[in-house]
Amino acid sequence: MIVGLILAGGGFGAGLFGSLLGLGGGILIVPLLTVGFGVPFREAVGVSLVCVIVTSSAAAGVYLERHLANLRLGMLLELFTASGALIGGLVAFLLPERALAGLFSLLLAYTAFSMLRRGRAPAGTDAGDELGTADAALEPDPGGLGDQLAGPGYRPRRLGVGAGGSLGAGIVSALLGVGGGIVKVPLMHLVMGVPLKVATATSNLMIGVTAAASAIVYLLRGGIDPYVAGPTAVGVFAGALVGSRIASRIDVRLLRLLFVGVLALTAVQMAARALA
């Protein structure tokens, strides 16, 4: 009985910190379940995918209501993220859990490094909505796909690279139980020339169906424990809700540095698990 409440509490913490730090819950839920509760890695990934769908669906609703997401671009790229998720979902059941834990430790280390770098960037650079190549990206292409995907002041470029990167993001999402925003947002913003806010909103929109594609594989192959998934997902949803309400009132700089330490420590634990 107590374990159910602790799972919900852990999920709440993951949702809260994920929301405050702009991370998806998955990067926190998998270590919480595997290192904290001893859940097998593949089952933790299945539960994490459910939590990722819950938080991204709730956030995507808000983004669409505010017209922040580029629905057309999302529909193009999610064809590739969902295909990647299907491939990743199938590969996840072929790989040994130690290999998955090793890959996750690399993802944790990369996330910690990215957060550290973001924390050291001069004030103002985090907003990143200015696009130096915006004019080049606005060369007219009447009737072309680029024009149909264009938004105010930008037209996504390098669609082939975007499609390939989205396929990779889908594979990572399915293998490691994360939303894949850590791949998709830089891909859309830095490579495709989409403004950061639009890239974040569009990535969030795609996460739900991407995670759903692999969650179906996990569910039908017995990789999702409803007794663990239920309390954890409810906790994550509540935590993300609270986090989104208090985010503007909290100085996250210290929290971010503290979190880099936690991520680095977890990365070491995951690596030890992979090498054990």
Partner: peptide, 16 residues
């Protein structure tokens, strides 16, 4: 719990 999980997975699919 099972119905909740199915509804969770179905939501983004219905959106598409």
């Amino acid at each position: 719990l099972w119905l909740g999980l199915l509804a969770t997975i179905a939501t983004p699919i219905l959106r598409v």
